[in-house]
């Protein structure tokens, strides 16, 4: 199921002002796996995600995503790489001026020359995949938080990207909706073979979806491996994290 490395992060350093947020982060994500990046609040998870997708350029280190060195890419090349990457933001980040359907179809409209009918059908299909029906013509503000996140997943997968990144997918959702979203990510991974990187600190979610985890602590990687390996690794910070329930 899991193939070669699709994302390799090496010796990554990031500063916010004088604060050393990421301090020599190293980890690898293999094609076809679900990698969960976890850690307590403020440990640098979201910064790491922003570095990988180049929303924030790291000060030092290497990020090799889909065979491209992200830290050195020019804007135009970066845009090309990002078309093969899906990102789901914590609160969905759907464009409020567009309908849900237009949001999902936006990457197709901008990056392909397909007809509007075809775009519509593909967007509907993706919305169907994330179990959203009759929302194409609704605006994001008319949907609940969980539905917005589902729509954001639909937008992230509309170009059938090789890898998708999810920032806190189940944060702020009720347990049932969170479970549904986790199932959706698992289904996408199993049926479409998508590599998924999830940033979260929701324990239930980690247990349900993670093939491997990377545990961050104060900007450093404490552990990378399976959940079972993590629990038996006798690392106090990780044990405390999982026993906090």
């Amino acid at each position: 199921m899991q193939g070669e490395a699709i994302l390799e992060v090496k010796n990554l350093h990031t500063w916010y002002g004088s604060q050393h947020v990421l301090d020599g982060v190293d980890f690898t994500v293999n094609a076809g796996e679900i990698m969960v990046i976890l850690g307590t609040s403020g440990c640098g998870k979201s910064t790491l995600l922003k570095n990988i997708i180049r929303l924030y350029k790291p000060a030092m280190g290497s990020i090799r995503l889909l065979g491209q060195e992200m830290t050195e890419l020019e804007e135009e090349d970066l845009e090309t790489v990002l078309r093969d990457v899906g990102v789901m933001y914590q609160y969905g980040a759907l464009l409020n001026s567009l309908t849900v359907g237009e949001n999902v179809a936006l990457p197709l409209e901008m990056h392909t020359s397909m007809t509007s009918e075809l775009r519509h059908d593909i967007a509907e299909l993706k919305l169907h995949q994330v179990e959203l029906k009759n929302v194409y013509h609704k605006f994001p503000k008319e949907l609940s938080g969980g539905m917005q996140k589902r729509a954001a997943v639909a937008r992230a997968i509309v170009m059938d990207p090789s890898i998708i990144f999810c920032d806190e997918p189940s944060a702020g959702l009720d347990p049932v909706t969170a479970l549904g979203l986790d199932k959706l990510l698992k289904t996408l991974n199993e049926t479409l073979g998508m590599t998924i990187v999830v940033v979260t600190h929701e324990l239930e979610s980690i247990r349900r979806i993670a093939h491997r985890i990377t545990y961050l602590d104060r900007g450093k990687v404490l552990f990378t491996g399976t959940l079972q390996e993590a629990l038996s690794a006798q690392i106090p910070a990780i044990q405390e994290f999982f026993l906090m329930e």
């Binding site: 922003k50 997708i53 929303l55 804007e75 845009e79 090309t80 990002l82 078309r83 990457v85 990102v87 933001y89 914590q90 609160y91 980040a93 759907l94 464009l95 409020n96 001026s97 936006l106 990457p107 901008m110 990056h111 937008r155």
Partner: peptide
Amino acid sequence: SEIATMKFTEELDAIKTLGLNPIRF
């Protein structure tokens, strides 16, 4: 206010990661 809200709700980040340039778009 529209652009500030888009920044706050990460819509501008989303536009970037959709491979689009926020200034152009």
